[in-house]
Deep mutational scan, measured.
Amino acid sequence: FSITQFVRNLGLEHLMDIFEREQITLRVLVEMGHKELKEIGINAYGHREKLIKGVERLI
């Protein structure tokens, strides 16, 4: 299971460039909250919320 699959499953594949540029893996994403996601350029609250909720389902 990769970050690419995870992001695609959430319908947020347009954010993949950010994850690749910042070298974010699923392991790193698990540790990130709204503040960190915003810092790397994910400005939409809804997108950040989707990512965080998606990660919570993985754990």
Score class of each variant (00 low, 15 high):
residue 24 I to W: 04
residue 50 K to D: 06
residue 44 A to H: 15
residue 29 L to K: 02
residue 43 N to Q: 12
residue 57 R to W: 12
residue 54 G to C: 08
residue 41 G to K: 05
residue 22 E to M: 07
residue 47 H to D: 15
residue 9 N to Y: 13
residue 37 L to I: 03
residue 49 E to C: 12
residue 14 H to S: 11
residue 24 I to Y: 03
residue 17 D to P: 15
residue 43 N to Y: 13
residue 32 M to Q: 02
residue 17 D to W: 15
residue 51 L to C: 04
residue 55 V to S: 08
residue 56 E to G: 09
residue 54 G to M: 06
residue 30 V to N: 06
residue 35 K to P: 09
residue 46 G to L: 13
residue 6 F to R: 00
residue 54 G to L: 06
residue 57 R to E: 12
residue 50 K to Y: 04
residue 8 R to A: 11
residue 6 F to D: 00
residue 49 E to N: 09
residue 6 F to G: 01
residue 28 V to Q: 15
residue 41 G to R: 03
residue 53 K to S: 09
residue 59 I to L: 11
residue 36 E to N: 04
residue 20 E to I: 14
residue 5 Q to N: 10
residue 1 F to W: 11
residue 44 A to E: 15
residue 41 G to A: 03
residue 18 I to D: 02
residue 32 M to I: 04
residue 20 E to H: 11
residue 3 I to L: 14
residue 10 L to W: 03
residue 49 E to Y: 10
residue 24 I to C: 03
residue 47 H to P: 08
residue 7 V to Y: 03
residue 30 V to H: 08
residue 52 I to K: 04
residue 9 N to Q: 13
residue 19 F to N: 00
residue 16 M to W: 07
residue 24 I to T: 05
residue 14 H to W: 08
residue 7 V to H: 00
residue 25 T to Q: 06
residue 2 S to F: 09
residue 23 Q to H: 14
residue 54 G to T: 05
residue 55 V to C: 14
residue 44 A to G: 11
residue 51 L to T: 00
residue 31 E to P: 08
residue 59 I to A: 09
residue 17 D to E: 14
residue 11 G to S: 06
residue 2 S to L: 08
residue 4 T to Q: 14
residue 24 I to D: 02
residue 6 F to A: 02
residue 30 V to Y: 11
residue 53 K to Q: 11
residue 53 K to L: 10
residue 51 L to R: 00
residue 26 L to R: 02
residue 23 Q to E: 08
residue 38 K to T: 10
residue 20 E to F: 08
residue 35 K to H: 09
residue 48 R to E: 01
residue 36 E to G: 06
residue 24 I to P: 02
residue 10 L to C: 06
residue 42 I to F: 04
residue 20 E to M: 12
residue 38 K to V: 08
residue 18 I to H: 05
residue 10 L to R: 01
residue 48 R to L: 09
residue 3 I to G: 01
residue 22 E to L: 06
residue 42 I to D: 02
residue 49 E to R: 11
residue 5 Q to S: 11
residue 42 I to R: 03
residue 14 H to T: 10
residue 15 L to Q: 01
residue 17 D to K: 13
residue 32 M to A: 04
residue 52 I to Q: 02
residue 56 E to K: 15
residue 47 H to R: 03
residue 26 L to E: 02
residue 10 L to V: 06
residue 7 V to W: 03
residue 6 F to Q: 00
